[in-house]
């Protein structure tokens, strides 16, 4: 596919000029990531597809919203997807009482792009890094982070869900973020 080895930044510039091929490459690279994040938040395939479509249309319409100096495109895109999915959850007034359980058949990390082995390896490496950082957190800290980030629960809701004092939630969140910050410093500041 045309432009499959171009950087994300180059592709976004081309998208800004209305290059559909460049957009198709970006889609191929990140469709799995966007859909996975959307599905993780929404836990519903149909709604997850709607959100994924919205996210990609936003990339098509406003590629300039990504600021390379703020980090990697994959991270930005995943974050945008998460925010959009949470907006969907809130707009539907849905709040899940049941906690998320990851699939048991150890899924592969999102690969970023099957057409660009180098990029796929890079994204997979980033994914492994973040996963390792999350896995290194104590279980109680990780749960606080996941409930806040993926489920969109407020600190008070987390407190109620975990049946721990609000102060404990704050402490766990602070300790978790401190550790993640140290581990992921390079990832969140680099540009592809």
């Amino acid at each position: 596919m045309d432009g499959q080895h171009a950087s994300d930044r180059e592709l976004l510039e081309r998208i800004g000029r209305g290059d559909e091929r460049a957009f198709a490459v970006v889609y191929s690279r990140y469709a799995d990531l966007v859909y996975s994040v959307s599905l993780r938040v929404l836990r519903d395939a149909a709604t997850a597809q709607d959100v994924a479509q919205d996210v990609f249309l936003r990339v098509w319409r406003e590629p300039w919203r990504f600021e390379p100096e703020r980090g990697k495109f994959a991270v930005w895109l995943a974050s945008v997807t998460r925010n959009r999915a949470l907006d969907m959850v809130r707009s539907q007034g849905r709040r899940r009482a049941v906690e998320y359980r990851p699939p048991e058949d150890a899924p592969e990390p999102v690969d970023g792009s099957a057409e660009d082995p180098q990029l796929a390896a890079e994204v997979a490496s980033d994914t492994r890094l973040v996963r390792a950082a999350m896995s290194s957190l104590p279980e109680e800290q990780r749960r606080v982070v996941e409930l806040a980030y993926f489920d969109g629960l407020s600190q008070r809701e987390i407190s109620e869900r975990l049946q721990v004092p609000l102060g404990t939630v704050k402490t766990r969140a602070r300790l978790a973020m401190q550790k993640l910050r140290l581990t992921l410093a390079g990832l969140v500041t680099e540009e592809r």
Binding site: V75, W76, A78, T81, V110, D126, T127, V130, Y149, F150
Partner: peptide, 8 residues
């Protein structure tokens, strides 16, 4: 933002 990459 990077936490999003941990999704299955």
């Amino acid at each position: 933002s990077a936490i999003a990459l941990t999704v299955p």
